[in-house]
Nucleic acid binder design. Structure first.
Length: 261
DNA sequence: GCGACAG
DNA sequence: ATCTTGTCGC
């Protein structure tokens, strides 16, 4: 995979206003509806789902990317590609973090590392799960959207915290596993008020007890709708809070740090 | 001026 | 994100 729109490749030397203007352009080019080359219902991490003799096609390849940071100004990005829960390829890459972490401008800090890791993959995933937000972003151009549009590749953003937007209903202390609550655009988002820009999704929950797990915040990156994005994430979670592609990329990024030190 | 803010 | 051992609760 390589950039289809080089003009969207994150440039950390831009002025803040220019970065935000670029995000507006990216949001304009983003497609927040299903435009996939595979059937999302065929997404699975069940290794045995492919044992049917007459399966008409291979399950789609889903990739996950995550970053870890070196002590200098470099980010290590790891990409893991899976087909039916089977790791078929991994790749890592490093890139400079031109700017510090600034809410709303994350893609200008980590975007190049992500693009480098995805380019290092020889396989072209059918969809990539990115750590961070997609459409749940002030200008509807979070890391997942920025990367997806730049590559014109289907992406989903999975964040552990909500950046902006308003839950349709207050998030309870404890959500049951599988529950999803729409996140709607408000005054702080450049989308019509009430637009569903993502979902709070409870990927895992303890059966009972005092402690509970927080939900994930899933949003479309590019070429997928908010509801399909949650469905896909639900299909890739296997007993852990994070979807398998992201979880594996997370640990790989940590291991890879030693390689670039 | 205050508050809120992915990783 | 990152610094970090044990520890409380499934």
């Amino acid at each position: 995979m390589e950039p289809v729109y080089p003009e969207f490749v994150p440039d950390g030397s831009l002025a803040r206003g220019e970065m935000e203007a670029l995000q507006d352009d990216i949001a304009e080019a983003a497609v927040f509806e299903d435009d996939l080359d595979f059937d999302p219902d065929r997404v699975t991490i069940d290794r045995d789902s492919d044992q049917r003799p007459l399966a008409d096609a291979d399950p789609p390849v889903i990739a996950g990317v995550d970053q870890a940071f070196l002590e200098d100004d470099r980010a290590v990005s790891a990409a893991v590609a899976l087909r039916a829960g089977e790791v078929i390829e991994t790749a890592t890459a490093v890139a400079e973090t031109a700017i510090p972490y600034i809410p709303g401008l994350l893609s200008f800090r980590e975007g190049n590392a992500v693009l480098a890791a995805l380019q290092a993959l020889s396989v072209t995933p059918d969809l990539t799960v990115v750590d961070g937000s997609g459409r749940i972003h002030f200008r509807q151009a979070g890391l997942a959207t920025h990367v997806g549009v730049t590559l014109d590749h289907p992406t989903i953003g999975v964040a552990k915290n909500l950046l902006c937007g308003t839950p349709r209903e207050p998030i309870p202390e404890r959500l049951a596993e599988g529950e999803r609550i729409p996140i709607e655009a408000d005054e702080g988002v450049t989308a019509p008020d009430g637009t569903v820009i993502g979902y709070a999704y409870q990927s895992r929950q303890y059966d009972s007890g005092s402690t509970s797990i927080n939900p994930l915040y899933v949003s479309p990156g590019h070429r997928i709708s908010a509801s399909t994005a949650v469905d896909v994430v639900a299909r890739t979670c296997g007993g852990y809070k994070l979807p398998e592609p992201t979880r594996l990329a997370d640990s790989l990024a940590d291991e890879a740090k030693g390689t670039f030190e």
